[in-house]
């Protein structure tokens, strides 16, 4: 087992002429909940997708548990994407079968009990489920694994406050204690108290990486307040703030 779970070295990603990540250096340890914070377009999704192998970096290197991205790292990463990815004709239980087949750390019993507490009927076809319910199914799939690294891309964007609390509660009560959760968001006030560490991403570069308590102690203000100060020039989307 490697001491560091994630190591990014001079990670750069360009889409044509646009630079999404500009030399990101990032090290993440084990057993923490880390917030990947930045406004829309700062490179959060790009970084997460590189970690799970859906995007290839233009330059730089990534190591997860000491290994380059590949079948091994994929077997220890549990990824919640920013979109729905499964075929509509399946049932939630079909997806549980699939996950149980491919991921040895998937706990079917836990998935079923999470469904029960979330009010999801797993034998329903996904087609007949509302968008919110489908998102819950996806969350169950991701959190019912005993993974080493959970990558959650905007898990609380676009949901009402009650659902938000529920999602955060689910993450807090279900993540593997020796695993690390990296969750991206631009809604910081809602999640600040669940975080160990905060990583600020601005224009594709890491501008701050520290523990939430250290930031509060040093700055005398919340991470949320600091975030607003740093990113004031940015144009935030919607009325979230």
């Amino acid at each position: 087992m490697n001491d560091l779970l994630v190591t990014c070295t001079a990670l750069t990603k360009r889409y044509g002429r646009k630079t999404a990540l500009a030399g990101v250096n990032l090290e993440l340890g084990r057993g923490r909940i880390v917030g990947l914070l930045g406004p829309n377009g700062s490179g959060k999704t790009t970084l997460i997708k590189i970690l799970c192998g859906l995007l290839q970096p233009s330059e730089g290197a990534v190591l997860v548990d000491g290994a380059p991205v590949g079948p091994y790292t994929k077997s220890i990463i549990s990824y919640l994407p920013d979109r729905m990815y499964f075929a509509d004709w399946m049932k939630a239980t079909d997806l549980f079968d699939l996950f149980a087949d491919f991921y040895s750390d998937f706990d079917r019993t836990r998935a079923m009990s999470m469904c029960a507490s979330l009010g999801v009927t797993p034998s329903d076809r996904l087609k007949s489920m509302s968008k919110g319910t489908k998102e819950k199914v996806q969350l169950v799939l991701v959190m019912a694994r005993k993974a080493q690294l959970y990558l959650l891309d905007e898990p609380i964007a676009g949901v009402d406050p009650a659902a938000r609390d529920f999602i955060l509660g689910t993450i807090l009560t279900n993540y593997n204690e020796s695993g690390t959760v990296l969750l991206s968001t631009h809604l910081i006030s809602d999640i600040e108290k669940v975080l160990d560490e905060a990583v600020f991403l601005k224009d594709g570069a890491v501008t701050l990486h520290d523990t939430v308590d250290a930031i509060r102690e040093r700055e005398g203000k919340s991470v949320d307040a600091l975030f607003r100060e740093i990113f004031r020039a940015h144009d935030f989307e919607g009325g979230a703030f």
Binding site: C52, G53, L54, G70, P71, Y72, K74, S75, I77, Y79, P81, R83, M84, Y85, F86, A87, F102, Y103
Partner: peptide, 13 residues
């Protein structure tokens, strides 16, 4: 496409 998000994050080659 979107289903690739699932297929390419499975621990397979």
């Amino acid at each position: 496409g979107d289903e690739g998000y699932l297929m390419h994050t499975l621990p397979v080659k």
